[in-house]
């Protein structure tokens, strides 16, 4: 039994926790809704998995260097609005606006490193700014997704549903870049022991800017993919994504400090969240309790992790 060997090995237990949570939710769905176990059913259940996974990965980059981005939701919303207006009506201008967003993320990283600003407050302030621009672009829901984006998100993939393929691709790309590449090591090292990394002659500023910019890139992809799914933009379309992204990282086994994260885990965490959301909808659980259920899941996972941590400390 996997379970038995895992219980005796806390480290292994911790690493399979994300997959275990996903399996649990999947199992629950298939028992309640056997019809969901199909190409079509999974496609529907996992509809929003791609943007959530991308936002989670974006948040993970920031968490790797011991910061937190509380503006992720507002930013994803702004990108969706830019996509539905500027990018649709005047592509060059749209691209320019998106590039400006990335530059803003780079500056945020530099400000956190150079001025020692708490990222929580800085990104909180930025969330106002992103929402402000989004409201300026689209004061009411509307606009149109560019056709190519819409088509991309509706890409028919044989046998395996598109969201699963996309999630696997995202996980592989980030796993290669952050966990396997030689520069990913430096970026993770900056989160683990910044002093040691600086002593070895690396620039912490460059590391911070790189991580925030990567967060900007993946947040942008999240916004665009979300727009591709919905077809129209709205300034508040992604307000919940701040919470989703943080919760996804945690469900995926990431830690808030110390540069210990797992891209594959984060994507699994995002899939779990997306599934749990759809599942709660299918079950006709009153939407009132949906956020509460997410909070409870979060606490449950953290409690499990604390338990495993206590097991590890015991000699």
């Amino acid at each position: 039994m996997i379970g038995l060997t895992a219980v005796s090995n806390p480290k292994l237990l911790r690493s399979i926790l994300p997959a275990l949570s996903l399996a649990l939710v999947l199992g629950a769905i298939f028992i309640k809704l056997p019809t969901a176990m199909s190409y079509f059913g999974l496609n529907l259940l996992l509809q929003y998995a791609v943007p959530i996974a991308l936002a989670t990965v974006a948040q993970m980059f920031v968490i790797t260097v011991n910061d937190l981005d509380l503006s992720m939701g507002a930013y994803v919303g702004l990108v969706a609005c830019i996509g539905a207006t500027l990018l649709h009506d005047n592509p060059p201008l749209g691209v320019l606006a998106l590039a400006a967003c990335l530059a803003a993320y780079a500056v945020m990283g530099a400000a956190v490193q150079l001025r020692g600003l708490p990222s929580i407050v800085l990104t909180l302030g930025m969330s106002f700014v992103w929402s402000g621009f989004a409201v300026l672009l689209l004061s009411t829901p509307g606009g149109h997704a560019p056709d190519w984006l819409h088509n991309l998100m509706a890409l028919p993939v044989p046998v395996v549903p598109f969201p699963i393929v996309a999630a696997a691709v995202i996980a592989c790309v980030v796993e290669l870049g952050l966990m396997r590449s030689s520069f990913g090591v430096i970026l993770r090292g900056a989160g683990g022991n910044s002093k040691a990394v600086a002593r070895a002659g690396w620039s912490l500023l460059a590391a911070k800017v790189a991580m925030f910019t990567l967060a900007g890139v993946f947040g942008m992809l999240a916004g665009l993919s979300l727009l591709g799914l919905t077809g129209a933009g709205d300034a508040h379309i992604a307000d919940r994504y701040t919470l989703y992204s943080i919760a996804g990282v945690i469900l995926g086994g990431g830690e808030f400090v110390g540069g210990r994260v797992s891209p594959a885990g984060a994507v699994l965490g995002a899939l779990t969240l997306a599934l749990a959301n759809s599942f709660l909808n299918f079950l006709h659980i009153s939407p009132d309790w949906q956020i509460g259920a997410q909070g409870a899941i979060l606490i449950l996972v953290l409690a499990l992790r604390a338990l495993i941590g206590a097991m590890e400390r015991r000699p």
Partner: peptide, 19 residues
């Protein structure tokens, strides 16, 4: 250095890479 100058979240080989 007297105090630990390795990144605890990385493997020994990865720390060599940082160096």
């Amino acid at each position: 250095f007297q105090e630990l100058s390795l990144c605890p979240n990385l493997s020994v080989a990865e720390n060599t890479r940082i160096f």
